[in-house]
Design a protein around this nucleic acid. Structure first.
Lengths: 217, 217
DNA sequence: GTATTTGTGAATACGCCGTACGGTAGTGAG
DNA sequence: CTCACTACCGTACGGCGTATTCACAAATAC
């Protein structure tokens, strides 16, 4: 089988899923494909372009959710698909918002969200639309990043209470014991039980409500 | 002068400001300080800890804005300070949301925002507060990241129309000419004149309004 | 005053990385 | 048969983070 951009991107994604973006190297991808490292440069200009390729593959899956009849259903579907993709491919969240997403599938997703939002109440002219797209994407980017980061630290410290106390605990509990961060302390101690997906949905609804219910520009 | 964590962090920040996070290396920092690379390991465990140090220095400046009397004024001040810090230190936006921010000054900022939001109308119990903090931070992270990324591409392609057309233009205009992305095309062509700061303010207000005006949990 | 310990900072070294470059074998065209 | 061309491969360079080793001066012991 003759090696192609798609195959390279696919194995790159597999490796990145397994070992993270830092653990990803052209040499490992090449080894995985059974070729020399330089072979990849016949299909890809440099590592950055390979990253763009990987990103657009993920966007392709996001774009699959397509268009619903209602604008809000479309936006919700895209947001959920983006979150799901980032949870499937945590490296995706590392790149989210950090570079221009100009691949064809990324543009398709952008088109779908913009088209949906342009049909939302309260979005009257282009300026409204630009702001609405910005607000929605900003929220999605930030929310997904936060959630993935949390998942990672939870995994690295260990999920259970004991390991937590052993790794981050000493420093953090000492910090919180100082009494200088009472509200944060309350949040950490009392509020760890919220479901991540529900929180995402809730806040997404909040943002959408804010967009649609703005009285003036 | 005997070299310290603060001095190391300061020159690291200077170098990162000048050449980006990718252009930052322990060897260059050491050379800038006139010492061997290994000297740094007497003050810092590894590069990741140095990054945490740099991040908390930036948070220290953000925390300086302190507490206003009104909760909304406090939140606005912190959000603006965060944005300003990210525009001063673009590498900061690369890290934003990508790792737990647990330094003392980062915690101080978190405390200030959480305390302010807990006084907002519509934020009744801890769960409300946790969601509100999440929504606000998600927006700030995403918005700042987007803006910095835009600035970078604008700078790398050149600000003027000609350079733009020369670099990203060919691919992007070809894409938009396909007619598959009409809404995006309209946004790119008609809507490039919005002021970034005003957009940030507007969307921040939108999010805050959404938070305060939620009828039910 | 000499010998010995101790600690500080420099030098070297290892295993990675992205990628520039030169070479080789096979293939179709003249 | 020759020749250009393509598809592929190995080697090499400079840089990275960091583990280890080493030189040497200051401090201590006799």
């Amino acid at each position: 089988m003759p090696l192609s951009r798609d195959k390279i991107a696919a194995t790159a994604i597999r490796l990145a899923d397994a070992h993270g973006l830092d653990g990803l190297s052209l040499r490992k991808i090449a080894k995985e494909l059974g070729v020399g490292p330089m072979r990849l440069y016949d299909y890809v200009i440099n590592k950055s372009e390979l990253l763009d390729l990987m990103v657009d593959v993920v966007y392709a899956r996001i774009a699959e959710v397509g268009q619903r009849s209602e604008w809000r259903a479309t936006v919700l579907a895209i947001a959920h698909a983006t979150r799901a993709a980032a949870l499937d491919h945590e490296w995706f969240s590392d790149v989210l918002g950090g570079r221009p997403h100009l691949g064809p599938h990324a543009l398709a997703v952008g088109e779908a969200t913009a088209a949906a939002l342009s049909a939302a109440p309260g979005v009257r002219d282009i300026d409204d639309l630009q702001r609405a797209v910005g607000a929605l994407n900003a929220f999605i980017i930030g929310a997904v990043r936060r959630e993935v980061t949390e998942r990672r630290t939870a995994r690295s410290t260990g999920t259970d209470e004991a390991a937590w106390q052993a790794s981050l605990g000493p420093y953090l509990t000492r910090m919180l014991k100082t009494g200088r961060y009472p509200t944060v302390a309350r949040l950490v101690i009392d509020g760890a039980h919220l479901d991540a997906e529900e929180t995402f949905n809730h806040n997404l609804a909040t943002v959408l409500d804010g967009i649609t219910s703005r009285p003036r520009t």
